[in-house]
Measured scan of single mutants.
Amino acid sequence: DSWHDTVDGIELELHGADEELLKLAKELLKRGVSEEEVRRIIEELLK
């Protein structure tokens, strides 16, 4: 799946992010949310 590559990229960027955020990112990508949107959501949550 192409979203796996996206998640791997996000995981590299979010090496400090907790497991729950990564699960959320994967779930959003699986549901068709764009990579940009996922990054934006996670950045908001990390604030």
Rank of each mutant, 00 (worst) to 15 (best):
D5W: 05
I41K: 01
G16M: 09
R31D: 11
L24P: 00
I42W: 01
L24S: 01
K30I: 06
R39V: 09
L21F: 06
E37Q: 06
I42F: 02
K26V: 10
E20R: 10
R39A: 05
G16F: 10
L46T: 05
E37Y: 03
K47N: 13
K26I: 15
E44I: 06
L46N: 03
I41R: 02
K47M: 14
W3H: 11
A25D: 00
H4I: 14
S34M: 02
D1A: 12
K47P: 04
G9Q: 06
L46M: 12
I42P: 00
L45N: 01
D1V: 14
I42G: 00
L29T: 02
L14N: 04
G32L: 01
S2M: 14
L22A: 06
L12I: 13
D1M: 08
E27F: 04
R31A: 15
H4M: 11
E13P: 06
E27L: 07
E43F: 08
E36Q: 11
L21I: 13
K23R: 11
R31M: 15
R31I: 12
G32A: 01
H15C: 11
E37N: 06
K23P: 01
E20Y: 15
H15W: 14
I41E: 01
A17V: 15
E44K: 04
I10Y: 08
E19C: 04
A25T: 03
E27G: 02
R39M: 09
E44H: 07
V33P: 01
V7R: 04
E27R: 05
L14M: 08
E13S: 05
E35T: 09
E20W: 11
G32F: 01
L29V: 04
H15N: 13
E11G: 14
T6M: 13
D8L: 15
G16T: 13
L28V: 00
L24M: 07
L24V: 05
D18K: 07
I41P: 00
G9I: 14
L45R: 03
A25E: 03
L12R: 03
R31Q: 15
L46R: 08
E27C: 08
K30N: 15
G16A: 03
G9Y: 13
L12M: 12
E35D: 04
H4C: 07
L46P: 01
R40K: 12
D5G: 12
R39G: 03
T6V: 14
L24H: 04
E37T: 06
S34V: 03
V7H: 11
L28R: 00
E11Q: 12
D5H: 08
I10S: 09
L14H: 05
L46A: 04
T6L: 10
S2V: 10
I10A: 06
V33F: 15
R40V: 05
H4G: 14
L46Y: 04
S2K: 13
E27H: 04
L28I: 01
G16V: 09
